[in-house]
Amino acid sequence: MKKEDCFYIGKIVKKYSFKGEVLAKLDTDQPELYENLDAIFLELRNNLVPFFIERSQLHKSELLRIKFEDVDTESDADAIMKSGLYLPLDLLPKLEGDKFYFHEVIGFTITDKNFGDVGIIKAINDSTAQSLFEIDRNGIEILIPMNDEFIVKVDRDNKTIIVETPEGLIDLYLEE
């Protein structure tokens, strides 16, 4: 399984018991979706390795307590500590309307109601307090905050996101 065919759901953050159980911090608004998985991919030395889950349950809101098959001791748990957790993209719940996953809108066109076509989304920057659309407009990078008030419509059929940004925001990037 290749990483680009999967999505990241969290990472193992600490050991839970001396029997190999671990706690994983999930990167999701809906941790309950991942409570009853049969298997998951762990990133070990830059490879995704499938692990089967004996049992798992939510532990203190966003932590998932997991007992993997064949991880039975503290040293087994140490070997997978800090590993990223991944699932195949086809297991992502489908989103409707104006909700979207970051990976699914890469390559979409951004159109502003007042400005017109802005450019193509080349990435999402979520390293700042406010996630940003990184848009390529003929070699010029334009950043638009992913603010619910700015997003008018997500048109999956036409691979377009229609936004209405504050006047002058896009022009800031185009003035020389």
Rank of each mutant, 00 (worst) to 15 (best):
R55C: 02
F133C: 05
A129Q: 07
A39F: 11
D70T: 04
A123V: 04
A77C: 02
K19L: 11
V118K: 02
E149F: 13
V22H: 07
C6W: 02
K82L: 14
N46L: 08
Y86E: 01
K67E: 10
A77Y: 06
R45L: 03
L33Q: 09
Y8V: 00
I121N: 03
K11I: 04
M146W: 03
S127Y: 13
Y8N: 12
T128M: 13
Y86I: 01
I162G: 06
K11D: 14
F7L: 01
L89S: 08
I135Y: 03
R45M: 03
V163W: 12
F115E: 10
I106E: 04
R55V: 09
S56M: 05
E21R: 15
P31M: 09
L33F: 14
D148A: 13
V71H: 04
P145N: 11
I135K: 02
D126P: 04
I106W: 03
P145M: 12
K11R: 12
L37W: 08
T165G: 02
L132H: 10
L48P: 02
G97Y: 05
T128C: 01
A123K: 14
V22P: 01
Q130D: 03
P31Y: 09
H59F: 15
N147C: 08
P50V: 10
I9D: 00
V71T: 03
V49T: 09
D117E: 15
P166V: 09
K94C: 01
I106S: 05
V49K: 14
L42I: 05
D78T: 10
D157Q: 15
L169P: 00
P166Y: 08
Y173M: 07
M81P: 02
D29K: 15
V22N: 01
A77H: 02
M146R: 12
E62Q: 12
L58W: 06
Y34D: 01
A39D: 10
L23M: 05
G84Q: 04
K25R: 08
E104T: 15
C6Y: 06
E74R: 14
V22M: 03
S17F: 01
L132K: 08
T28Y: 10
Y34S: 02
S83I: 01
F100L: 04
T73H: 09
K2L: 14
E43S: 13
E176D: 13
I142W: 07
D29P: 07
L174A: 05
A123H: 11
S127L: 11
K11C: 03
R65S: 14
L169D: 07
R55S: 14
I40Q: 00
I12K: 00
